[in-house]
Write a protein that binds this DNA or RNA. Structure first.
Lengths: 190, 190
DNA sequence: CTTATATTAAGACCAGGTACTAATTTTCTT
DNA sequence: AAGAAAATTAGTACCTGGTCTTAATATAAG
């Protein structure tokens, strides 16, 4: 890397650390062919913390993100549920849910919200989606808020017919008819 | 926390660190009412590294996990694609994809794999799912390998009819008919 | 040539450890 | 109860990857 001036170096330094936050000052110094002190001055001026703080912050952020994917936060917040009858779920559209370039939400996230909601309103330990018929009406963009409303239309024994309608900015963007089977937990004595 | 014996303490130490890997030895010592040295001996015996290494490993793992969620790895690995014709995607079922108690994969993950595959085989910058008809045949359990096969049935202008069949252990567990719209990137000059 | 800016150096200090030695306390066994 | 074994605590030297401060150079600009 040919010797750069301060402004260029600091710009590249930021890029470099964004791409790999685990680099220590010594490594950065070698990359840019300057002394450790210079790197430290650069970090100061740019307000970039030391490697251990960067690592910790990555860990904490990513940790909670992964947890949120697992716990289902990323597939909508259940704001209102009447078991075996109806439910409401809200999902804020953030970058993570989008195709990179387009700012358009990936279809399966809209589906996931609806599916999760449909399953959640069925009052049983395990609810399985049997089949569903779905339709997307228009793309949903980053920053919109997806509001999914679910209603149980019919219920036959352990078979529930749930309709979900998802709106964004007052438009219906998704509709789905889910058939859900309730399977009571065999471990649980009745 | 009443004074525990070594075995109990070490057990709880592991739990504690699993739940919060960012605790330093001093904090652990206070939690268990023992000296720092004891905590360090415990960590040694249990093969638990120091807080900075733990943090880094959490950061790296979670980092790649988050990236994989975003990049689509978690919704299946595309192993073979013939653009505008067919494709194959493999998804190993891990705990993250399951309902906690049951070891059954959540429906929307199976859908996500199929949806992603269907979109991927369409040769365009942006492909949007218009609608789909899907069916789940049996639950899928942790440890199984989901193999999704997609085939373009019809193609009319920017409208593609894609069928996806997903198998696990030789059973067809999911079928879906997707209608996908291709939308060429307006930024891209033709 | 002189001044301002940028870079490098040097030293004291810090957190959160490792690695090792040794003393002290508790528990078990005979 | 005495002695051995196991568990706990203490203390010291050293490590990494820094911070914070002071000071000496190098380079560029007026």
């Amino acid at each position: 890397m040919g010797r750069l001036n301060k402004a260029e170096r600091q710009k590249k330094l930021q890029d470099k650390l964004e791409e790999n936050p685990f680099l220590i000052d010594k490594e950065l110094a070698e990359i840019f062919g300057v002394s450790i002190q210079t790197i430290r001055l650069d970090r100061m001026e740019l307000g970039i913390p030391e490697v251990r703080k960067r690592t910790k912050s990555v860990a904490k952020q990513a940790y909670s993100k992964v947890k949120s994917v697992q716990s289902g936060e990323i597939i909508g917040e259940l704001v209102d549920i009447e078991l075996d009858q109806s439910g409401l779920s809200i999902l804020e559209v953030t970058e993570e849910l989008c195709l990179e370039k387009t700012k358009i939400v990936r279809g399966h996230h809209i589906f996931a919200q609806a599916n999760t909601l449909a399953v959640a309103i069925i009052d049983t330990d395990v609810a399985l989606t049997g089949s569903s018929k779905i339709r997307y009406n228009r793309p949903v963009y980053i920053g919109e808020r997806l509001i999914a409303k679910a209603k149980v239309e019919k219920a036959k024994k352990n078979k529930f017919y749930v309709n979900v309608e998802t709106k964004a900015s007052n438009d219906t963007v998704f509709t789905g008819e889910f058939i859900i089977f309730s399977v009571d937990d065999p471990d649980k004595e009745v």
